[in-house]
Design a protein around this nucleic acid. Sequence first.
DNA 1: AATGTATTCAACCGCAGTCAA
DNA 2: ATTGACTGCGGTTGAATACAT
Length: 264
Amino acid sequence: MGRTPCCSKVGLHRGPWTPREDTLLIKYIQAHGEGHWRSLPKKAGLLRCGKSCRLRWMNYLRPDIKRGNITSDEDDLIIRLHSLLGNRWSLIAGRLPGRTDNEIKNYWNTHLSKRLRCQGTDPNTHKKLPENNKLQSINKEKSKVKATRSKVHLPKPIRLPPSFSNSSLPTTKHSASRHGRESSGLVTDFAVDAIPSYNLNRPSNGYHVQCHDHLYRFHGLNVDSSDFECQSDQLLTADHISLEKLYKEYLQLLKTDNDQFKID
DNA sequence: AATGTATTCAACCGCAGTCAA
DNA sequence: ATTGACTGCGGTTGAATACAT
């Protein structure tokens, strides 16, 4: 059996997207919405595979993508979420409004894992490295210092045609933070997705989680952590308590960020 | 200025999960 | 139960860029 690679068709474009392709994709999605990626390229007049279109949209063209440096607060959150979730980038990205899994994955691999190593922490396990390993890591990084650029994490280039309205432009940090992903039901899927062995159903009125003989129900998407409802304390393992605590701290950070924006 | 090297990140690849027929 | 289409995820690659020599 097996499936044919989605990009195997001869004649499909690959590599970097052109402004024209971006325009076609954005206009099509604005008119018809996301989804149906397989058929989208043909309908939108793109010579790309659906997978490529989805990736371009999710990682670059989506209007709620936050541009610019990853803040130290986000740094801290990524590290802590990684210690809980591991390399589950999409889950981690879900807790960082406007950030994509690809961006966080890249940022982790290029910055955070190195930093942790220098601090004497194993980036995979988040446990302290033996002292000699720590020294090796530090020396290794020191030897690179000359070659290391003082990185300015500039906003990603935006390639959109002049005809595009401001509302369709990828947003800046502050405007993105007001877009509302922070109000999505983070804690709900957070708790659920963090338990891989659970059987998850998502009916229209919320999540149901089947765990062993117990059925747990969570409210729908638009909830905050206070809406977190569980029919049994059994679900609140140490991990879940940590996750919920983390999420509350995160909401506080967002609030601070928004307050700061209002002051500005 | 030219060349070599390191770094970044957008894009690709392959696989797994889900769902409908 | 099986098959195949579709989607999403994480790992990897390689072109572009920045910096050092």
